[in-house]
């Protein structure tokens, strides 16, 4: 694949994977890519477990690009309770394409199971985000455990793997290239296609898809 846009094949694209794999970054980049391709685009922040670092942080930037945002009303406040966005149903009924950013384990993915039938009826593709450099889920076997956990909690099927292996600001060309065999191994043991490998937009690496780091900068 040459662009994240090619991931948007059905009404709903679900982006899931272990905490810290870069789900939110991929989901936000995908929603932006859909909008830039002239299609109606919306993103739902369904990461209801983690109160920090979420797509809600990019609400203004997304709205400016014409991406509709569905964000829990308590996001970025001190209310630490799991809550869904009030306009959640637009995920299935809205025009164009929807992106769902989902929390990274069985507990986080329970929100998918809740609306299992809606995803099936609307049509969905679910992708697993893998980061070779995340502790615990670094090895393909560890990542597969989380993948199975999400499958069980959601009752949904995965359709492919996004290799988002990175070391944050310390990512180099070598970081990306060295991780590819591990992503291929995960693809093999999970019996899912490896759809693409990402690369931060400040680097040039062959056969990768560039993404922008949308994480809040504190310093």
């Amino acid at each position: 694949m040459n662009s994240l846009y090619e991931l948007a094949k059905e009404k709903v694209t679900v982006i899931s994977g272990p905490y810290g794999s870069g789900k939110t970054n991929i989901a936000v980049n995908l929603a932006m890519s859909i909008a830039k391709n002239g299609k109606k685009s919306r993103i739902a922040d369904l990461d209801i477990v983690n109160p920090y670092f979420r797509s809600a942080d990019n609400e203004k930037m997304l709205n400016d690009l014409g991406v509709q945002t569905m964000i829990p009303i308590f996001a970025n406040t001190n209310v630490d309770i799991p809550a869904l966005p009030p306009n959640y149903h637009l995920l299935f009924t809205g025009e164009g394409f929807s992106v769902a950013d989902v929390g990274g384990d069985g507990d986080g993915a329970a929100v998918l199971g809740l609306s299992h039938d809606d995803y099936v009826e609307a049509g969905y593709k679910m992708y697993f985000v893998y980061n070779r450099y995340r502790y615990i889920t670094a090895e393909p076997e560890g990542a597969l455990e989380v993948l199975e956990e999400i499958k069980r909690a959601s009752g949904l099927e995965f359709h492919g793997i996004i290799n988002n292996s990175n070391l944050g600001a310390e990512t180099t060309e070598e970081t990306i290239i060295n991780a590819i065999p591990y992503a291929e191994k995960l693809s093999e043991i999970a019996n899912l296609p490896l759809l693409l490998t990402t690369c931060p937009d400040w680097l040039d690496v062959e056969n990768t898809v560039k993404i922008t780091d949308i994480t809040k900068k504190l310093f």
Binding site: Y19, G20, N131, Y133, R134, Y135, I136, A138, N166, L167
Partner: peptide, 13 residues
């Protein structure tokens, strides 16, 4: 080898 970790996880590890 360098790995990505949250501060909370790094304290525990």
């Amino acid at each position: 080898e360098k790995l990505l970790m949250k501060g909370n996880e790094a304290i525990a590890e």
